[in-house]
């Protein structure tokens, strides 16, 4: 095995690793960097359990090669909370019981975050289509859609408050 040395940023931290040319970003995250939040549900881009943000773009990390991430920014579920403060999506997923087994949850959280970053007020069907790349076999998606909807409201309120504060001072 000939290793490829890669420098990248994961959840804001500078990270270096050496990987085989065939290894995916998901392999690297899970097996080299100890970040097992992203899951392998299929390895073929069909389940979304491995979702991460790559330069802000939602990707299936099982379809990205580890060697491709040189110099890029990766965000995983492990980077979503701000210290001990959960992200509104994480909070709402808990409040709405939007997870049963929870194995799909990291992927849904990352995908929902990507949605809310580009659309702060999505309709039900926008939420449903934005999350159509993530499979959940437990919930029937009902409570997930409600949770994302509620979190969108939280984020809008947060943003408003921030603007107000800025304007005030």
């Amino acid at each position: 095995m000939k290793g490829i040395a890669v420098s990248t940023t994961v959840n804001g931290d500078a990270v270096e690793f050496v990987c085989d040319a065939r290894e995916t970003l998901l392999d690297v995250l899970r097996n080299h960097l100890g970040l097992t939040g992203a899951k392998e549900g299929c390895g073929t881009g069909d389940c979304g359990a491995c979702s991460v943000l790559l330069d802000g773009q939602l990707v299936c990390s099982c379809l990205v090669l580890g060697a491709e991430v040189e110099g890029r920014e990766i965000e995983t579920v492990e980077g979503m909370a701000d210290g001990d403060r959960l992200h509104p999506l994480q909070k709402r997923f808990l409040e709405h019981a939007a997870l049963q087994c929870g194995v799909c949850t990291p992927g849904f959280l990352v995908a929902a975050k990507a949605l809310l970053e580009r659309n702060s007020n999505p309709s039900e069907s926008e939420i449903r289509y934005a999350l159509a790349g993530n499979l959940c076999r437990c919930t029937g998606y009902d409570k997930i859609v409600h949770a994302v909807h509620a979190a969108a409201g939280d984020l809008r309120r947060q943003q408003k408050a921030r603007k107000k504060r800025k304007a005030a001072g």
């Binding site: 097992t36 579920v77 909370a81 959960l86 808990l94």
Partner: peptide, 21 residues
């Protein structure tokens, strides 16, 4: 009542360990 599940935080932060973890 609809209380929060005790294993919830681990499951929304990626900390929960599944079979392959």
């Amino acid at each position: 009542t609809r209380v929060m599940r005790p294993d919830g935080v681990d499951k929304v932060t990626g900390r929960a360990r599944y079979g392959a973890d």
